Amino acid sequence: MSAVAPTPRAHALRDNLTMLRRSLLHARRYPSLTLNVLLTPVMLLLLFVYVFGNVMSAGMGGGHADRSQYVAYIVPGILLMTVGMISLGTAVSVATDMTEGIMARFRTMAISRASVLVGHVIGSVIQTMLALVLILAIGLAIGFRPNATPVEWLAAAGLMALVSLALTWIAVGIGLVSPNPEGASNLGLPLTMLPLLSSAFVPVDAMPTGFRWFAEYQPFSPAIETLRGLLLGSGIGTLNAVLAVGWCLALTVLGYVWCRARFNREPRR
């Protein structure tokens, strides 16, 4: 009897796993890129806690300086800033594949085209979650004391994974349209700058009026406030949760459609 031929779905799954393995092996062989993008959030965390922590705490606590209060406030913001940093590294990695001709070779192979993108995305999400464990460990070491139930921990992990998925699809698109890795790094700057204009470091109520509306409704602030509420047990707020999930779903769909359209476009001769 002849063997049963694999179904297209089985082929696609196999291709996705192959590309995921390639992405993880690349990250293991070249860890410097991940370490470099992790350096910024770690340094910002230590800088704001140990240099500005007392001042920030006094401002938030009505004149009473308590650094631990600011540690509790800033760690959720740094966690989501880390997500943006790792996704920027993904944009650079994709741009590198484009300039080295690997993507052109993948286009000619009998594989699922979507698997090339999916491998980058899932690999990046896995790397991001591992990086977040490191950042959280540093936060715990300097005094972060979350007050979350097991269900809230699961919800927080799910939120961070969802934010990572959304930003990574956007980052892959940036890598596909960039002329080189340096261009991808420049085009991806909003992924790292937006957290600075959010509620990551100071409450939006303390911002000038011109920035307050933007900071409150841009993608990072609702996600940070939702994560902060989950980890600290202070309540997430329905609006923040809806905005956070809505932004993530919208960016995921937008990024996926953009990446598929760009990758399927034949390269210029």
Rank of each mutant, 00 (worst) to 15 (best):
T7W: 08
T7M: 10
T7L: 14
P8N: 10
P8F: 08
D15N: 07
D15F: 01
L17P: 06
T18E: 07
T18S: 11
R21L: 09
S23R: 07
L24K: 01
L25A: 11
A27Q: 14
Y30L: 11
P31R: 03
P31K: 08
L35Q: 03
N36W: 11
V37L: 04
T40E: 05
V42A: 15
M43S: 11
M43P: 00
L44G: 06
L45F: 12
L46T: 12
L46V: 15
L46D: 10
L47R: 10
F48L: 14
G53F: 02
N54Q: 13
G59D: 08
G59K: 10
G59H: 02
G61S: 15
G62A: 12
G63W: 08
A65G: 09
D66R: 07
R67H: 02
S68I: 06
V71D: 04
A72R: 13
V75Q: 10
P76W: 05
G77Y: 06
L79I: 09
L80D: 09
M81K: 02
V83R: 03
S87P: 01
V92H: 07
V94D: 01
A95Q: 10
M98W: 03
M103T: 15
F106R: 14
S115K: 10
S115T: 02
V116T: 13
L117Y: 02
V118I: 13
H120N: 15
A131G: 11
A131T: 04
V133F: 06
L136S: 07
G139T: 13
I142K: 02
I142A: 06
G143N: 06
G143A: 10
F144D: 00
P146Y: 01
A148P: 00
T149W: 01
T149Y: 00
V151G: 12
E152C: 00
L154Y: 00
L154N: 08
A157E: 05
G158V: 06
G158D: 08
L159K: 04
V163E: 02
V163R: 00
S164I: 05
G173Y: 05
G173D: 00
L176N: 00
V177P: 00
P179G: 09
N180A: 10
G183V: 05
A184Q: 01
A184W: 10
A184G: 11
L189P: 07
P190N: 04
P190G: 14
L191Q: 00
L197I: 14
S198P: 06
S199A: 12
P203I: 05
T209N: 11
T209Q: 13
F211M: 15
E216W: 09
Q218D: 01
P219D: 11
I224C: 04
R228D: 12
L230W: 01
L232M: 12
G233Y: 05
T238A: 14
L239W: 09
N240K: 02
A241F: 11
V242K: 09
G246W: 09
W247P: 00
A250S: 10
V253E: 03
R262D: 02
R262I: 11
N264K: 15
P267Y: 10
P267Q: 12
R268K: 12
